[in-house]
Amino acid sequence: MDKFTRKTSFEQWFSPISSTKLEELVETHHLNYYTKKLHITSFLKLLVFAQLNEIESLRAVSETLFSDDLQKATDLESISFSQLGRRLNQIPTDVFQQVFLDLVAQIHAKSQYEQRRKTTTPLKIIDSSTLPLNLNN
């Protein structure tokens, strides 16, 4: 038997999400309380998969679980789109924001952002909720 276990591509895509940060968010927001099947980790894996594969609806996401590989990666055999919708509504946007900001911080650390920022134009994230609405167009 090999000493080296290879990560699947899917595991590599999900691995930058800090498990300790995610556990803190789960505890803070009580995300896995009263949850029998769709724990936050499995749900986030499904969302990452859906984003990477440009899946357009929760119904289509639930249908992708017919794949044995995806079932193994998410620890789910099946899930209905209504369960996905309810779960999505239960998770505060702050959780997704914190995961995103943690990933951005990792990118900055690996790309030596602070040093490069002085010589290049910085990346700016625009929050569309703060932009004024133009109702005339």
Rank of each mutant, 00 (worst) to 15 (best):
68 D>A: 11
67 S>Q: 05
54 E>T: 05
126 I>H: 04
102 D>V: 01
19 S>P: 02
134 N>Y: 15
68 D>W: 03
72 K>S: 09
86 R>E: 14
49 F>R: 00
38 L>Y: 04
1 M>R: 12
25 L>G: 01
79 I>V: 15
67 S>M: 05
133 L>R: 08
6 R>N: 06
136 N>R: 12
108 H>E: 13
96 F>R: 06
30 H>Q: 14
40 I>S: 06
112 Q>D: 11
12 Q>N: 08
96 F>T: 07
81 F>Y: 15
120 T>P: 01
131 L>D: 09
129 S>H: 14
105 A>Q: 13
73 A>T: 00
72 K>W: 01
61 V>N: 00
103 L>A: 01
84 L>C: 07
53 N>M: 05
113 Y>M: 02
129 S>C: 11
79 I>L: 10
122 P>T: 06
113 Y>A: 07
55 I>C: 07
126 I>M: 02
82 S>E: 12
15 S>W: 04
129 S>K: 14
81 F>K: 08
19 S>M: 12
90 Q>G: 08
135 L>G: 00
126 I>E: 09
58 L>W: 07
101 L>I: 09
31 L>G: 02
116 R>Q: 11
26 V>T: 13
74 T>N: 02
104 V>W: 08
11 E>G: 11
94 D>K: 15
65 L>R: 04
118 K>C: 00
48 V>W: 01
97 Q>G: 01
8 T>G: 10
109 A>H: 12
125 I>C: 10
57 S>P: 09
129 S>L: 14
36 K>Y: 07
115 Q>T: 13
110 K>S: 10
105 A>V: 07
55 I>P: 03
74 T>C: 11
16 P>H: 11
85 G>N: 13
127 D>N: 15
31 L>M: 07
107 I>G: 02
85 G>L: 07
76 L>V: 04
39 H>T: 05
4 F>Y: 15
109 A>Y: 09
3 K>G: 11
122 P>W: 11
102 D>I: 02
30 H>E: 14
129 S>A: 13
103 L>T: 00
116 R>P: 00
95 V>H: 06
62 S>V: 00
78 S>R: 13
57 S>R: 12
135 L>K: 03
50 A>P: 04
97 Q>S: 14
85 G>D: 06
65 L>C: 05
9 S>W: 09
32 N>E: 13
103 L>N: 01
129 S>T: 15
116 R>H: 14
92 P>L: 04
102 D>F: 08
1 M>S: 09
127 D>R: 11
48 V>L: 14
48 V>P: 00
28 T>P: 00
124 K>S: 03
6 R>Q: 10
81 F>A: 08
82 S>Y: 12
68 D>F: 11
38 L>V: 06
53 N>K: 05
112 Q>T: 02
92 P>F: 05
84 L>G: 00
60 A>T: 08
121 T>A: 03
14 F>E: 06
84 L>W: 03
29 H>T: 03
69 D>F: 10
100 F>L: 06
136 N>T: 13
41 T>M: 07
58 L>Q: 02
129 S>D: 14
14 F>A: 10
49 F>K: 00
133 L>W: 00
69 D>T: 13
71 Q>L: 03
9 S>K: 14
125 I>N: 04
53 N>G: 04
99 V>P: 06
